[in-house]
């Protein structure tokens, strides 16, 4: 079955099963490997992308749900890697191993799009489901605040 996707502003026609997880299509069919496979069952957030501007977990999003809709991955967040969150991430050296960080940034980007100046509690609530096995949570929160212009100095 042919499924039309708009990923990071580009149209793609994929010959794929509509029940295939969007994550597989992104990584295996389109080569967009910035989105990570962590748990595969909606537990870790490593696979977070945007669907029409809202964060979804690509490992449990059937490809058919994304048909005809706008998908945004970490590769498309900004043309030059200078989205305020990416800049804050670099400045505060947030990642440890880095595995979870694309998902963290995409979740934070969805938060800031809806709520540009979130409180600490709002940041914690929105990112509560994005796990980091390296424990970079305090740096993640500081970087979100820095990107929001509400604090987060090194």
């Amino acid at each position: 079955m042919t499924i039309s996707l708009h990923v990071n502003g580009q149209a793609h026609d994929l010959d794929a099963d509509p029940d295939m997880p969007l994550l597989w299509a992104l990584r295996d069919l389109l080569g967009l490997t910035g989105t990570r496979y962590g748990c595969g069952e909606a537990h870790c957030g490593a696979c977070t992308v945007h669907l029409d501007g809202r964060a979804v977990r690509a490992c449990v999003t059937p490809l058919g749900r994304a048909a005809g809709r706008r998908v945004l991955t970490i590769e498309g967040l900004s043309p030059d890697g200078r989205h305020p969150l990416q800049a804050a991430w670099v400045e505060l050296a947030v990642p440890q191993c880095g595995f979870c960080q694309a998902g963290q940034i995409m979740c934070a980007a969805a938060l800031l799009a809806a709520n540009p100046r979130p409180s600490d509690a709002e940041i914690d609530r929105s990112l509560a489901g994005n796990l980091c096995r390296c424990g970079t949570y305090t740096r993640i929160r500081a970087a979100v605040k820095k990107a929001a212009g509400t604090g987060g100095g090194p």
Binding site: A42, H43, C44, G45, T48, R54, A55, V56, R57, V60, T61, P62, R65, C107, A108, A110, L111, A113, A114, N115, E122, R125, S126, L127, A128, G129, L131
Partner: peptide, 26 residues
């Protein structure tokens, strides 16, 4: 994962019910 009710019972930005739950069981 630890999710919050949010203003309309559908979660919070970044972590809506529909971020993971589809229209059928997976």
């Amino acid at each position: 994962p630890p999710v919050a009710r949010g203003p309309d019972g559908r979660g919070v930005p970044g972590l809506h019910c529909g971020s993971c739950h589809q229209d059928r069981n997976l």
